[in-house]
Each structure stands twice: as C-alpha cells, then as structure tokens.
Design a protein around this nucleic acid. Structure first.
Length: 1262
RNA sequence: GAGCGAUUAGCUCAGCUGGCUAGAGCGCCUGCUUGACUCGCAGGAGGUCACAGGUUCGAAUCCUGUAUCGCUCACCA
C-alpha cells in the first residue's frame, strides 16, 4: 500500500466496478422496503458545478445509508432539456443571433445533436462524485416517455377545465426579438426625466411620456385629500394636498377652491388634450394609487405595464397597443408614430411644451429592465399565452372533493404530509402558495415540449384525444399444451372456450372491429369472439401483430419439449428479429392503431403486445427487456390500452341515401321531389346505421328531398341515440333542369346504371337547359356547404350521389375541374354508401411549454406514470426525499407537489431537504467576475471525490450557504489520508500474524472502551441521519475516526497487540464511514477484507455493546496520560526522556495498576507505581491532580514555575466554586431546577472544593 | 418597499426542545525525524456569544427593540 492515498488511481475504477456489477440497480422485485430519491436533473448541456456536487454528496449519503440499513434504494438519474438555457447555449454555439435564421426542424435538430453530445459530459461528471445512481433507469425530461406524460397531464388539466388561454404581460426583448423569462431580465439603475404634465385639470407624472397618448381614466386614491384650485385665467388644477403644498408655483398662481376627499372625484368626466390629440377622460378611485408619489394621480397604460394591465382588467378598460413588437410607436401615437421609444419620448416632451401641457420635468431615480443577452430595453408587452388556473375549483378525482390546485399544493405542507428541512422554508412556501397567480406555461421558444393544442382555420381549439383500444390475449393453443414456443398452432378445446371469456369482458363496448395476427391461435380466437357478437363484427388480419419468438428458440424448446418461460427469453439470442426490429414493428402497429376509429378489439400475443405497450411510449430496448419480465398477461384477459392521439380536423361523415324508386326505374332524379326509397334502399340505410353506430353523431343533416329525409330518419332510429335532424336545402342533388324525370337513355342516350360520363359531358358543354345548374353554381353551392359545415362537429350528412361526388372532388382539389375525369374515379365509388371528410385541417400551436412543466412531473414521469400499474410506479412511488437547492423551492418543488397531488393523488415525497448556495470561504457568492469560482472537477482531481464530499457536507447546515475554500478541502483530504493510513497500519499488523480472523470480541480495556464508543457513535450517526443532520453525523464520524480510533486506540493497540479485534473493528469502521467517503472505504475494503461483495452490499453497523465501567476507567487513563503530556510539554522534556510516576489512586488503585503498561507507553514513563494512598510525596516531583487522583511525577522542578502554575489553577477553581455556590444559595434554583441537575452541581462543588484544598496544600508545601 | 436569515476565537462556521468551565476546522505559538500517516504527533494561547431591554432559578439559545450584513420577492406611475 502506498504511503498516501492515490484517489486518481482508484476512484474511476471503483465506480466502473460498481456499475458493471450492477450493484447500483434497484430491484423492483425485491421485498425490501423502498427508498427513493429522484435526482434533480441537471441541464443536459450544463457542466457540473459545486451546487450539483453538494446535491450529489447529500443524496448519495442518504442513499448509501438507507441501502446499508436494509432498504431497496432507487436513486433515479436523468437530465433536463432546460429549454431557454439550452437554446441560448446552442445559439452561441452555432454563432447565430436568432433561431429564425434556421428552420424549426433544423434548429431542433441542432439542439438535439448538441444535447446528445453534451449529455455524456455531465453524466461522466456526476459519476465522478461517486453517486450511487441507477443508470439503467436514466431519464431525460425531453424524451418520448416524458413527452407522453406531459401531454397526458396537459390533457387531464384541460379536461378539468384548468387550462386557459389569455392575454398576459410578458418581457419582450426588442433586441433579441424574443420573450424573456423574468429571471433573464436585468435591472439597471438609471436617472431619467420625470414628466409632469396637464391632463385636463389634473397634473399627472410619468417617466414614460411616450405612452401617454391614449390612456383613458385618471386614477386617484379613494380617501386621499385632493386640492381643486383655480388661477386667474380660469385654469383648473386637481392634485393632492401634499403636492400642491410642495410646489410654490402652484401655490402662487392657483387659488384653492375646494378640498375634496377622493371619492367625490369619482365619476368626473372631461375632455383633455394629450400630446397625440384630444381624448375623453373619466376618474376612478383605487387604493393602489400612492397619494405620496408624484402628483397623486395617474393614468393607465394597460398594454405596456403589468400593474396597469391588472387595473385595466379590474375596470374592464380597452387595451390599446402603443408600442409594437419592433419597439416602434403605433399609429395611436400621432406624430410619434414609427419612432423608437426613446425618440418618441423626446418628441412627446417637445409636443407637450408646444401645447403647454408640460408642467415641469425633473430628474427621477428609476430602474430599467434590460435584456441580459442583447442589452437592449425590455418592453412589457401583451401577448396571448396559455395558463394553468391554480385558483379554479375542480373535482379532485382522488378525494372526490372540490378543491383548487393551489389548495392541494399548500395543504400538502400544511397538513404535514410534506416536511421541509429546514422548517423555516415552509414560510417561504406558504408565502408563494398563498399568493399564487395563474401559471403561465407557454414559452415562445422552440426547444421544448410543444404545446399539445391545435387550431383549425377558424381558430377553434383542438386538444389531443384520449383513445382506448381493447387488447385480449388469445386462448390456449396446442403449443401451450405441448410446452413448445412459437410455431403456428391451433387452439385447444379449452382455448376455444376462452373466446366466451373475452366476449363477457367486452360485450358492452361498442366494438366496431376485431384485429388479430396472422397466426392460427389469434385468428381462431378472433373469429370465435366475432361470432358471439350479434352483428358478426368485422375481422381484420394484421400480420404485424404476429408473435416474435424466434424459430431458433422455438426449435430449441420444441425439440426438448422443455418449457421456456418468456421471462427466460434471452433477447440477445433473438435471431429472427432483433430488438430494434421488434421496436419498429411495435411502433408501426401503434401508428396504424391511431388511424382506427371507433372501438377496436385486438386479439394479441403476449410478447408483441408487451412490446407495443412499451414502445408506444419509449424507444429504449433495454428498458423493454426489463418491462417484459415484469409484464404478465393471462390468456383471455382483456386490457385497455390508452394513449393520446393528435386531434384530427373536424371530420364529417357523408352518406348517400338508399336506393330510390327512380333508381330502379332508371329515371333522372336531380332535384325532383316526391321520390321515395324502395324496400332495398331502406334496408341499405339500416345496415349502414349499424356500421356507423360507434360514431356518436350529434346531428344528422340532410337535403330537403324526400329520399334523403327518409334515409335520415331511418338512420336516426337505427342509431338509437336520437341525434336531431336538420334540413339543408343546399345539400340537394344537382339540378338537371328539363331532363329530370326522363328515362336515362332518353335523357343522355345511355342505358347504363348511371351514365356519369354522359351527364358530365352535357353539363360541361352547357347542353342542359337554363334551369339546370352549371359548374359555377355547383361549385358555389359546394363551398357554401363546406363553410357551413366548418361550424359543425360530429355530424352525419345525408345527400345525393352526384352532389356528394362534387363535394368530395372540391374537398380534394379545391375546384371541380374536368367533371369527366373526376367521374372516372367516382364511378368506382358508385356503391360506396358513406365516407368521411376532414373539413378543416389543423395546425399545432407554435409555442412550447415552460421547462418547469415537464420538471414538475419528474418524480413520477420517471416511474412509468401515467400507467399507474407500472411496476416502478407501484414499487417506488411516492418518493421519499427530494433534495435540492433552496433557490428552486418555489420554481420546482412547489410545482412537483402541485402536479404530484393532482395527477397521482399523493404527495410525490414526504421530505424536502434544501441545501444552501455554495460560496467561497468568506461567504461570497462564487462568480466568474470575482474569480473565486471553484471547478469541482479540478478539485476532485486534486484531492479526490471523498474529500470534496466531506467539504460540502460537514459544516454545512441545510438552507444556509456552504462555505468552501482550499483549506477546508485539503483538511478533509487529510482525513481521507488518515483513514487510508489507519488501513495501512491494520494491514501491517495483519502481515505480522497469519490468518487473522476479524473479531469483535473485546479482550482488553481499550477494546472494550472502543467498542462501547463505537456502538454509541453508530447509534448517534443513525439518529442524526434520520433527522437529516448530515453535517453533525459526518462530524461525529470524523472525530471518532481521527481522535478516538487513530489517536487513542491505535496507540493503545501497539501496547497490547490483538490483530483480530483491530481488524474486526476497522472493517466495521469502514462500513460506518462508507456513506460519507465511499471510494476510500471501498478501496480499503477490497484491499483488506476477504470478501467478494462490495462494501455497499454490507449492513450499516449497529452494535449494541455497553461497558460503562471500562469507559470510566479508560477515561481515567486518558486523563492521567493527558496530564503527564502536559507536564512534559511544560517542562519541555524530550520524548526520549522517560519519567517515573507514582499514582495515589484511592479505591481504583488496582484497576489503574492493571493498566500501568498502557500509561507507561502513552505517557512516556519508565516506571509507573500505583497505590491506594501515597503518604509521602517523592522528592523532586511535581504533583498533578486528575479525577480525584494525585500523580507525582519525578522530575526536577523549578519552585517558581510551579508556584505560578498552582496559582492560576487555584484561581480558576475558585472562580468556578463561587459560581457553583451562588447557584446553590439560590432557593429558586434548588426548588425549580431539576433535581438531577442540583445534585450534579453539588457533587461538582464538592469535587472542586476538594481539589482546591489539595492545590492549596501543595502551594503551601513549596 | 416587503419577506426571510445572519451577527459566537484571527478566518469560516457548529451549538437541535434554555442547564456543568461555549465547541470544531483552518490559522497562530511551543515541542517532536515515536516503527500507519509532516496530508503527521503532543501541548498551548485566543471569545463581554453585535448592542439595549425583557421573560426565567438559569439565556449564545426564548421575546421586544436598535444597528450592520446577506439572500429572496416586488418594482413603483
């Protein structure tokens, strides 16, 4: 072993070993109690900083401790896509100013590439800290799985009416042409002109003179006193009394006519000139007006200030945009139109002077919001945004009670279900929950979860649709009986009966279609189930639903007739189809399913269905293998497969009326009325109705011709849901004029069923009479129908063959074009009874969601939610502890609680532990400009991760700044090295004997003492960790190892060698220290312990050894030794020079005498004589008192020096005696203080008095 | 402007529900090439616990006020 611990040589290797051995993976099947911490995901493009390091250290200690105390721990890692931050980094990296320089897809591609590249860096850095993370479950806030959760909760919120769209003030950076988050705005102190100008009789004040061109009401304070004054010229003036008194000019020129409390001003109306024209004003009183500020009156710029906007909403004022998004004045600014804000302000001032509106201009200290990126001014602007209504009531699915998101969030902490460490942050938490405003979740950036909202051309809003497909597993096949895997076998008798079981489960659903694989057992089951439905439901065979067991595997198991459970499938061995291929197949099935309408029943196979369930949300093949192992599906069992589907535009179904009398007699129908359906036509309508039953039509719209109305009525009756019928004459068949009623052959010279070609030719050629509709008319009618249909949703339209064709053609091509060509395809569709058209197409909202939206789901979106039956969710949710920096309590923690309670009904964790900001050793914030920043990776390579962890954890209390400096770090490096060297000592001792078996049986005094102390320390550490007093726990370990084990015990062990115990206790100490310093302890464990397991797999020590007597005796020995050392130091005796001592030890003489060897070695004595009482003090000796004993040390002494020593000791003793006595003299003390304390005081006094007595004797004997 | 926190040794900080002579690390001073470790060992000096009141038998600890510093939020027509 090296003399100094080489962290660089061992840490990475140890971590690799942990990882490859899989010790850090949480076993979802374990029976142990779970303990879960979600890792706050660092920015994927970020670098590890000390805040991360502190977070990792604290969480790792908790995780390792819990694991060693018998928990199944899951510490789930991941990264955050950090929307705005990443976008900015990528912009910089690409050296472009704005993302608009690229296409959306192109830019996102660059972001994705960049994020993937940087991902490995941050992950590597996290590993450097020794974090015991389950990398097999690594997640990313912007992957497919998380996107699914995001959309799911968005949909849920929307369904509960909690998502709204509204206007809201945003920070608009004119320079960057982008919205900024509040924390991206920098405030700059500025001295600006404060304009005070006339507005009718009022004098108003503002810095932003340019915005005062279209304000309407004048706001005053309701109870403040206003002065109404008039000058000789009749000019009126209304200002607060204070303002009036402060301005000599006003006092001089104006004469007070009236003093009015504000309320009387309310309702006052006047017309007044502004710099941009005359406007009407009225007066409103509101408390928000500060009568002390300015003139005590103001007007409202609703579109350019958030406070004003709030007022505008309160008083329902018109919103007038005065500045556009380019930072230029709009037309309302009159002469200032088109000017920049700064120029407009100057110009407005000049106009005010011209119009003598300006009363005065004075300097005013102001703070101006600036864009941190472009440095330009940030304008508050109004823009449409999406919100979560946090104060709106809804019915909580879990409690069944009415509540609000805000209440749910606050109550989680208020009811004690979540504890915040340190507690004082609960105040901050409540301060937020009590004043929570609607959460604006939309961001005008590209890198993020796109808002799952679509609009049609009319601006109507569409949300994703929840869709459910029923899956049922086929019945038992011959292969099951014969224990063969794969192959194409038929159902057994019992397998055939499974169909009835399936039917029972799904009979009440409106199944429109059954889909099955191309394998016999699937098809047969499907056929049997279909047969049980009265209307003989349609079956579709999808070969892509075939099971994926490989033929090789089938042969293997088939040949041996050995049962191979799917759980034993070695996915690497799948030769026929790789995991990647299975994934692609599952995903294509998924997208095909999305095109299905109505309720669909899929008869599936176990493995491919599992793949479908998994890969519909995820691309991760490794996770699929695990998922599959936990996924059970009984034969015949049905399950709902729920997913979200992008909305389609408004889809309208069209239906051609059934066969009419004239169809049979082959007469031209056109718009001729009085034609009715034949019996065949009626039954056609009834059949069709069955097929359309799943659609839940709200309305049937039909033309006003009898054959259509008749059809509509049959449909209505058959559909059984009584949609109303609306008659639209514009849905009539095209009008053919004079030929109507004639025989087809007669009219068009064609006897075929329906001579479209001939009709088309005639219409195009204009050969029909003027009563017939021409192409323009037809086209206009079709467009009118579409325009009207856009307002409908879920309607069924009953019209006529020819006109429906026109509608279809126009929908596809925009115009009729050549009818003949069109009818070539239409002919093929002649027998078609119905079709659907998407009347309007949808476009998705351009905006993305606030990063915190996806982060808020982190504690459960990583565990399989929204699938609440997911193994991980069942096993590891709720989480236990959420540990993070206190600065994001309100941003993140609060939102996790909100979404957690809302989406899962449970608090996502029970404890929130907040660490402080890491700062330098003088408490200064670390910053690049100050140059006091510390790069954790640099420090790790200098001193090792263990030392860094200790530095960040010890001496840090939750919520308070964590000071970190070089000296602190090197101090803990020294500790790690100390531990290492203790290990070296142990190894050296072991090398001196053969086959030492570690033992925890103490044989001598110091071993008993140490084991007793070790028991105490373990208990204390556990206690402290339970209370999250990590610093105190670390401190205790630090001092136990260094002071008690190294400095005392190792020294004593040199006196009486017992390698077995030394070995045993040292291994236990390694376990104790492991959560704190995992690397060095693991290294020592591997070097010393003869054990194949890693240290982390061992139990945290919890010995229960008590021996108070030995502890007391050892304390006496320690005192003696310390006193001797003091004497030696004072007398400057070199260690080589041994001393002789005599101890007068009273009753404990025998016990002390038994330890004289120990005293001799530790105290550097040549002889140690112990007696009950030594009556004669040896010559040339110094006397020291310790624990009621007298120790005579035989050394030449200097009487003068001895005198001063004794005098000072006497005086301190006297002082303490006075204090103790005065306490005991106090009656109240004796009566009110606890008896044990009083007794203790008494004995202390006695002891001190005794010592004082002896010291005085010694002094007099000198 | 509002809220929260801090003020303890030269420096950085512990001190949990009040209770022996207020602790640690670093630094400082004095010794020591003791056979695990100079990234060490032994010993030592150093504090009116910001200030002023109050509660209490008893206050660094609880309460009130003052001062200084820090953090967070809001941003003022």
């Amino acid at each position: 072993m090296e003399k100094n611990y080489d962290h660089n040589g061992s840490e990475d290797k140890i971590y690799e070993n942990w990882e490859s051995a899989g010790v850090m993976r949480a076993d979802e099947n374990s029976a142990k109690k779970s303990y879960t911490i979600p890792l706050p995901p660092p920015n994927v493009t970020g670098q590890l900083h000390l805040g991360h390091a502190a977070m990792l250290a604290v969480e790792d200690i908790l995780i390792r401790y819990k694991k060693m105390t018998g928990h199944e721990v899951l510490w789930l890692p991941g990264t955050d896509h950090a929307a705005i931050a990443t976008e900015n980094v990528v912009l910089k990296y690409l050296e472009i100013k704005s993302r608009e320089e690229m296409s959306r897809e192109g830019f996102l591609g660059e972001c994705r590439k960049f994020a993937t590249e940087k991902h490995d860096r941050i992950v590597h850095q996290i590993k450097k800290m020794g974090a015991h993370l389950d990398w097999s479950r690594e997640a990313y806030t912007f992957d497919r799985e998380r996107n699914f959760s995001v959309n799911w909760i968005f949909k849920k919120l929307a369904d509960d009416g909690l998502i709204t769209r509204g206007h809201r003030m945003i920070n608009w950076s004119v320079g960057a042409q982008s919205v900024l988050a509040d924390d991206e705005v920098e405030w700059e102190d500025n001295e600006e002109d404060f304009y005070e100008f006339w507005c009718g009789p009022f004098i108003l004040g503002t810095v932003r003179a340019e915005t005062k061109c279209a304000d309407s009401p004048v706001m005053v304070h309701p109870t403040a006193e206003y002065v109404r004054a008039k000058n000789a010229a009749g000019r009126e003036c209304v200002v607060t009394k204070k303002y009036f008194n402060e301005h000599t000019q006003l006092r001089k020129d104006f004469e007070i006519t009236e003093i009015v409390p504000g309320k009387k001003l309310e309702g006052m109306k006047f017309e007044a000139e502004t710099y941009a024209g005359t406007r009407k004003f009225w007066v409103v009183a509101d408390e928000v007006i500060d009568p002390e500020f300015g003139t005590g009156a103001m007007t409202i710029s609703a579109s350019h200030s958030s406070e004003d906007f709030a007022l505008a909403q309160k008083y329902d004022l018109e919103l007038i945009q005065k500045i556009d998004f380019k930072g230029k004045m709009t037309a309302i600014a009159g002469l200032c139109e088109g000017l920049s804000v700064a120029a407009a302000r100057k110009k407005a001032g000049e106009i005010m002077v011209e119009k003598s509106l300006l009363f005065q201009k004075r300097p005013h200290a102001n703070r101006v919001p600036k864009c941190y990126r472009s440095g330009t001014v940030v304008e508050p602007m109004l823009s449409p945004q999406w919100f979560i209504s946090v104060n709106k009531e809804f019915v909580d699915k879990f409690s069944g009670k009415k509540t609000t998101l805000c209440k749910l969030t606050a109550d989680a902490v208020r009811d004690g279900n979540i504890k915040i460490v340190p507690k004082r942050f609960e105040k901050t938490y409540f301060q937020w929950t009590d004043n929570l405003r609607d959460w604006c979740i939309s961001r005008q950036i590209w890198w993020g979860h796109r808002i799952p909202v679509w609009y049609d051309e009319a601006g109507k809003i569409f949300l994703p649709e929840k869709k459910s497909v029923i899956f049922a597993r086929h019945g038992e096949s011959q292969a099951n009986v014969e224990n063969v895997i794969g192959g194409d076998f038929s159902l057994t008798e019992s397998g055939r009966r499974t169909a009835e079981e399936i039917f029972e489960q799904v009979k009440d659903r409106k199944i429109s279609k059954i889909i099955c694989s191309n394998l016999k057992r699937g098809k047969e089951t499907a056929e049997l189930v279909a047969g049980l439905f009265a209307n003989n439901t349609q079956i579709e065979v999808w070969p892509e639903l075939d099971e994926f067991c490989s033929t090789e595997l089938a042969q293997k198991s088939g040949a041996n007739f050995r049962r191979v459970s799917p759980i034993q499938i070695n996915f690497d061995e799948l030769k026929d189809e790789s995991l990647d291929q299975i994934r692609d197949r599952a995903q294509s099935v998924f997208s095909k399913l999305q095109n299905e309408t109505g309720e669909v029943l899929v008869i599936g196979h176990k493995n491919i269905t599992a793949a479908l369930f998994h890969f519909s949300r995820s691309d991760d093949t490794e996770k699929f293998v695990r998922f599959r192992k936990n996924w059970e599906w009984r034969r015949g069992e049905s399950r709902d497969f729920e997913f979200l589907q992008d909305p389609r535009g408004n889809e309208i179904s069209f239906f051609r009326h059934g066969e009419s009398e004239w169809n049979v007699s082959k007469k031209v129908q056109g718009q001729h009325s009085g034609i009715y359906l034949t019996e065949k036509g009626k039954s056609q309508a009834r059949d069709a109705a069955k097929k359309l039953a799943y659609k839940n039509f709200e309305k049937i719209i039909c033309s006003d011709l009898e054959r259509a109305i008749e059809t509509a009525e049959i449909l209505r009756t058959e559909l059984g849901i009584s949609p109303k019928i609306e008659i639209w004459p514009e849905l009539r068949e095209w009008g053919l004029g004079a030929v109507e009623g004639k025989n087809l052959a007669e009219a068009f010279g064609a006897s075929e069923n329906f001579p479209y070609d001939a009709i088309a030719r005639k219409i195009e050629a204009g050969e029909l009479d003027s009563n017939a509709e021409n192409l323009e008319q037809l086209e206009a009618r079709a467009h009118a129908v579409f325009a009207k249909l856009k307002k409908e949703k879920n309607a069924l339209v009953v019209s006529h063959g020819g006109f429906l064709g026109i509608l279809q053609k126009i929908h596809r091509d925009g115009s009729i074009g050549k009818l003949q060509e069109f009818f070539k395809t239409w002919k093929k569709l002649e027998n078609l009874q119905h079709f659907s058209l998407e009347i309007s197409s949808l476009t998705q909202d351009e905006d993305t969601l606030d990063t915190w939206f996806s982060s808020a789901l982190w504690p459960f979106s990583t565990l399989g939610w929204p699938d609440e039956s997911a193994t991980d969710f069942q096993r590891f949710y709720p989480n236990d502890v959420l540990e993070t920096g206190h600065d994001i309590l309100t941003f993140w923690v609060l939102r996790m609680v909100m979404f957690g309670r809302y989406a899962t009904g449970k608090c996502p964790f029970h404890t929130v532990y907040l660490h402080g900001l890491v700062c330098d050793e003088h408490g200064q914030k670390m910053s690049k400009t100050k140059g006091n920043g510390i790069d954790p990776l640099e420090v790790i390579s200098e001193v090792g991760a263990d030392a860094v962890r200790l530095s960040l954890v010890i001496g840090a209390t939750p919520g308070n700044p964590i000071p970190l400096g070089k000296s602190k770090v090197s101090g803990y490096r020294n500790f790690v090295n100390k531990l290492w060297n203790a290990g070296r000592f142990v190894q050296f001792q072991l090398s001196e004997s053969e086959n030492v078996i570690p033992s925890l049986t103490p044989k001598n005094l110091s071993e008993k003492w140490l084991l007793h102390r070790f028991s105490e320390v373990c208990a204390n550490v556990s206690q402290k960790l339970k209370k999250y007093e990590i610093s105190a726990a670390g401190d205790e370990i630090y001092h136990f190892v260094w002071d008690e084990f190294c400095n005392w015990f190792v020294e004593t062990s040199k006196v009486s060698r017992n390698p077995a115990f030394l070995y045993g206790i040292f291994l236990e100490i390694l376990k104790l220290a492991h959560p704190l310093v995992p690397f060095v302890t693991e290294k020592l464990w591997q070097d010393l312990a003869k054990d194949d397991e890693f240290l982390i797999e061992k139990s945290f020590p919890a010995p229960d050894f008590q021996d108070k007597k030995s502890v007391a005796l050892f304390a006496q020995i320690q005192m003696i030794v310390t006193e001797l050392r003091k004497v030696r130091a004072e007398k400057k005796l070199p260690p080589r020079e041994k001393i002789s001592i005599h101890i007068s030890a009273g009753k404990s003489a025998d016990e002390i005498a038994a330890q004289s060897d120990l005293i001799a070695v530790l105290g550097g004595c040549s002889t140690v004589k112990v007696a009950e009482k030594i009556s004669q003090k040896p010559e040339h000796s110094v006397t020291v008192l310790s624990e009621g004993m007298e120790i005579f040390v035989e050394i030449p002494f200097d009487a003068a020096a001895e005198k001063t020593r004794l005098t000072t000791e006497i005086s301190t003793l006297e002082k303490s005696i006075v204090a103790l006595e005065s306490r005991l003299k106090n009656k109240n003390y004796i009566e009110k203080a606890p008896a044990s304390l009083v007794a203790e005081t008494k004995s202390q006094l006695e002891k001190n008095a005794n010592e004082l007595q002896k010291l005085r004797e010694q002094l007099s004997n000198l």
